[in-house]
């Protein structure tokens, strides 16, 4: 179970106490999102298929588990996987969107411009990234129950969209999932659970400081054919391959 450690002021506490007596408000994604710092765990169960590859291991059945951190503001979304010492950042600056892959152990960043992402068919779905689920999918799910979880109004939702079965517990005030489960027709399942959430202003865990990292433009990877770092990480990048035949 997750543990929430807000350090709210007196006014916020009073509001929360009042809110706990109130009905759960409806889903509303058309509001400015609260800046948050959160920690999640994701488990992926791969049903196994002799004709498929998954993370370089063809046909293996099993569960992979990883804990990761998440920071969300209006202009920046960052994810960090401490165990892998890697992370991802989406930045919004006016009409421009930048995406970065962070390699903390190497103190290097690979940065993508909008056109790179277009060419690689990487969708720039800012809303999906900050909500962690496609808002159109979320709005198609059926509300099964209403709840209050540690002072937060929550909706339990479920349903199938495009052949994927969803189960979601949604914290309405934070617009963040407390539980997000997806399963496809082959039995592959991905479950993400919230472990901890704080307001960004009171976050106890800060984003890794990447200000001194070397930034490598994605477009330059092809000209760094002898760079040991580039050779090592090429296949972890969008557009790369996990070919094992």
């Amino acid at each position: 179970m997750y543990h929430i450690r807000f350090v709210f002021g007196l006014a916020v506490l009073l509001l929360t106490a009042c809110a706990q007596q109130s009905p759960v408000p409806p889903l509303n994604l058309d509001v400015p999102l609260v800046d948050v710092s959160a920690r999640f765990v994701t488990e992926r169960f791969h049903a196994g298929d002799a004709h498929e590859e998954h993370d370089g291991h063809a046909g293996e059945e099993g569960t992979a588990r990883s804990e990761w951190q998440f920071w969300r503001t209006a202009s920046r979304i960052e994810m960090n996987i401490p165990a892998r010492q890697t992370g991802e950042v989406w930045m919004r600056d006016g009409n421009a969107v930048f995406h970065q892959k962070l390699f903390h152990a190497d103190r290097k960043i690979v940065e993508y411009q909008s056109a790179d992402l277009d060419a690689l068919n990487v969708p720039m779905q800012w809303r999906t990234n900050e909500l962690m689920i496609d808002p159109q999918v979320l709005q198609q799910l059926q509300v099964d129950a209403e709840n209050w979880i540690d002072g937060h109004p929550a909706l339990e939702l479920s349903g199938a969209v495009d052949g994927i079965e969803y189960e979601v517990v949604w914290l309405v005030d934070l617009n963040l999932p407390q539980h997000l489960s997806k399963q496809d027709a082959d039995g592959n399942r991905e479950t993400t659970r919230l472990l901890n959430v704080e307001l960004m202003a009171q976050a106890s865990v800060q984003q890794p400081d990447s200000s001194g990292y070397e930034i490598i433009d994605y477009a330059d990877l092809g000209d760094r054919e002898r760079d040991p770092f580039v050779i090592r990480i090429q296949n972890q990048l969008p557009g790369g391959h996990a070919h094992t035949h």
Partner: peptide, 14 residues
């Protein structure tokens, strides 16, 4: 063989 991007999980899936 082609990986696609999955920002939620850091994973790249076929």
């Amino acid at each position: 063989t082609r990986k696609v991007f999955n920002p939620l999980t850091e994973g790249y899936v076929a």
